[in-house]
Simulated scan of single mutants.
Amino acid sequence: MNDLCIELDHRPGALARMGEVLGAKGLSVEGGGVWSVDGRATAHFLFENGAAAAHALREAGIVVHAVNDVLVQRLKQDVPGQLGKIARRMADAGVNIEAMYSDHDHRLILVVDNYAAGREVSEAWERERAEHENNEGGAQR
């Protein structure tokens, strides 16, 4: 999966046009959002095929600033502080989070400035989560 950083015109219909372009090419948005700051609209959207989405958007004259690899995590939604913990681990590893949002499957999507280092943190987080779940399952038997 890939995150696309997209510049949209800050006007009615810009997001609709983007969605129509993608829909006409059979491309589905898997998560993301649009933010407007100081009259500029920037979007980060998740796609199964980022290259195809970027091509379709650029072909339609929509500016795509970047196609990014993403880190995907499933946080324990019932445990407060999960975002702070994973963000702290990224920060302690010198990784800056460029964008963060959820996908349609309630997973945390992170775009980071150092993908290799961020992936190490993400994989360690996932191993610990799996070990914890295995330990909880064994204790409940």
Rank of each mutant, 00 (worst) to 15 (best):
N96R: 08
R17Q: 13
G81A: 10
A43D: 04
A53W: 00
M90W: 05
W35L: 12
C5D: 07
R141W: 15
S102G: 12
Y101M: 11
V72L: 13
A91V: 11
I62Q: 01
I62K: 02
E48W: 01
Q140F: 11
V72R: 08
E131K: 13
N135F: 02
E30K: 02
A124V: 04
V29G: 04
F45R: 02
K25I: 07
G33C: 11
D92T: 10
I97Q: 02
L83H: 08
L75F: 13
S122W: 00
E20K: 09
D3M: 11
R88C: 11
G31W: 00
N49R: 15
L15V: 08
H106E: 13
T42G: 02
V34R: 04
A56H: 00
R89W: 05
M1C: 08
A51D: 12
A41D: 05
D69P: 06
G26I: 09
S102M: 13
V29P: 02
E131H: 07
E133S: 05
N2V: 05
G23Q: 14
R119L: 14
Q140G: 06
G137M: 14
H106M: 06
R74M: 07
V21I: 15
R107E: 03
I86Q: 03
E120H: 03
A14K: 03
V21E: 05
A93R: 06
D3H: 10
L75G: 00
E123S: 01
G19A: 13
E131F: 09
R40L: 12
K76R: 11
L8P: 00
L75M: 15
A24V: 09
P12Y: 07
V34W: 00
E128F: 01
I86Y: 00
R88M: 07
G84I: 11
V111Y: 01
V64G: 02
D69S: 14
E131D: 11
R107F: 10
S102A: 12
R74T: 12
I6P: 03
K85E: 13
M90S: 07
D105L: 11
A56Y: 00
G19K: 14
A66R: 08
D9N: 10
V67C: 10
Q77I: 02
A99E: 06
D38K: 14
G81K: 08
L22T: 05
L83I: 11
V63D: 13
A130C: 08
L71Y: 01
A124D: 14
Q82D: 11
A43F: 01
G33R: 06
A124Q: 14
G84M: 09
G61H: 06
I6R: 00
V64E: 03
A53S: 00
E30A: 08
M100Q: 10
R74E: 07
S36A: 09
A56W: 00
D113G: 12
I97R: 04
L57N: 01
A56Q: 01
E98M: 15
R11I: 07
K85R: 12
V95K: 04
G26T: 07
R17A: 06
D113E: 15
E59I: 06
A16M: 12
V111D: 02
C5L: 13
G31H: 07
A130V: 15
